[in-house]
């Protein structure tokens, strides 16, 4: 009862960060328990090749169901695949990413197995064979410690919490048959958002601009920083610039906008009014860039840089690119 199963999310035929982080978290837990890491992945042609790379992140055995029908996430097939794998082994835990797929799938598996599920887990520990986890409740205003009463311990792991670490496992890939039988639901399409941008509530990194940006055209600087920060980053805005018509309301963070809790929040040219803070205070790490050393945003910022944003933001984008390329 020491093995750990990880669900590897495949999106657009790719193994992404969600899959690597889930497998890495599974590896850490399996090392504590003295077991192996098994992976289940469903996808279209080429999935076996893509999922094979998860061996580098600690997967010992990678079970892949390749079928053109799985090019899009199919909840019922994924549920059946994970449930039958769980039943055929002796798993202490089953890990899913806390992504749209993982959050949809894990409760289905839990419901079918009759197993407990902890969602958006931020820490995992083992104590004498039993597994405990930590997870936020009340929108992060409280943290719960939970102990699983029975195996398997099902959980979705929060993005950006369990870093993808390269720790090679055996990485044996085997093709498993697809799931026979009718699906109750069919995912028939995907519509990309009109604005090809992550929603400010979903992104793990938010670059928010305020009146200090001075002109809507200057947002190219922030867009460039977002691009440097990668796929998980998106733009946010203060109300001042939304009211001015510089940015869409969808980006507004604060009391009358959205509440966000990304891992990293950049407040650029934002003074830090209480109504703005209401929407971003729970961000894990807050960085403020402002030329006024007395701006209230510095009272909540973990890191601050005082100075002209027009000089700091381009340098920041460049430095971020440099370190991300170095790995």
């Amino acid at each position: 009862m020491a093995d750990v199963l990880a669900f590897a999310e495949i999106r657009d035929g790719q193994v992404g960060k969600a899959a690597r982080e889930t497998v890495s978290a599974a590896r850490t837990l399996a090392n504590d328990l003295g077991g192996a890491v098994h992976v289940v992945a469903l996808g279209g042609a080429g999935t076996a090749g893509a999922a094979g790379g998860l061996g580098e992140f600690g997967a010992d055995r990678i079970m892949v169901a390749e079928d053109a029908a799985y090019e899009l996430y199919q909840p019922d097939a994924a549920t059946a695949a994970v449930v039958s794998t769980v039943k055929s082994g002796e798993y202490a835990a089953v890990l899913f990413p806390a992504s749209a797929q993982g959050k949809d799938l894990a409760p289905r598996v839990a419901g079918r197995l009759g197993s407990g599920l902890a969602t958006e887990v931020t820490a995992v520990a083992t104590e004498g064979g039993s597994i405990t986890v930590k997870r936020p409740m009340y929108a992060g205003k409280a943290i719960a410690t939970l102990r699983f009463a029975a195996a398997p311990a099902l959980m979705t792991v929060r993005a950006n919490v369990f870093p993808a670490e390269e720790r090679p496992g055996a990485g044996a890939v085997e093709q498993v048959p697809g799931i026979e039988g009718a699906s109750r639901v069919r995912v028939t399409g995907f519509e990309a958002s009109e604005r090809d941008q992550l929603d400010v509530t979903e992104a793990s990194v938010v670059v928010a601009g305020g009146r200090g940006m001075q002109d809507p055209e200057n947002w190219t600087l922030l867009e460039d920083l977002v691009e440097a920060l990668g796929d998980e980053a998106t733009l946010g805005a203060s109300r001042a610039v939304v009211d001015a018509g510089w940015r869409p309301h969808a980006e507004q963070v604060g009391q009358t906008g959205k509440t966000v809790s990304p891992n990293l929040y950049f407040a650029v040219g934002i003074s830090g009014a209480i109504q703005h803070l209401a929407g971003m205070r729970t961000a894990k790490v807050i960085v403020a860039i402002n030329r006024d050393a007395d701006a209230p945003i510095f009272n909540v910022a973990d890191y601050g840089v005082v100075g002209d944003l027009f000089e700091i933001v381009p340098a920041l984008a460049e430095e971020v690119r440099r370190v991300r390329q170095d790995g």
């Binding site: 197993s115 407990g116 409740m137 409280a142 410690t145 102990r147 009463a149 973990d302 700091i312």
Partner: peptide, 29 residues
Amino acid sequence: SLELVELEEPPAPAAGRIVGEGAGAVPEL
């Protein structure tokens, strides 16, 4: 299926720090 061992309030945010001034502070940030 999950025993609630403990509920706690998240730690108060640690006091932040000014890393420095201008673009020169960027590498340290």
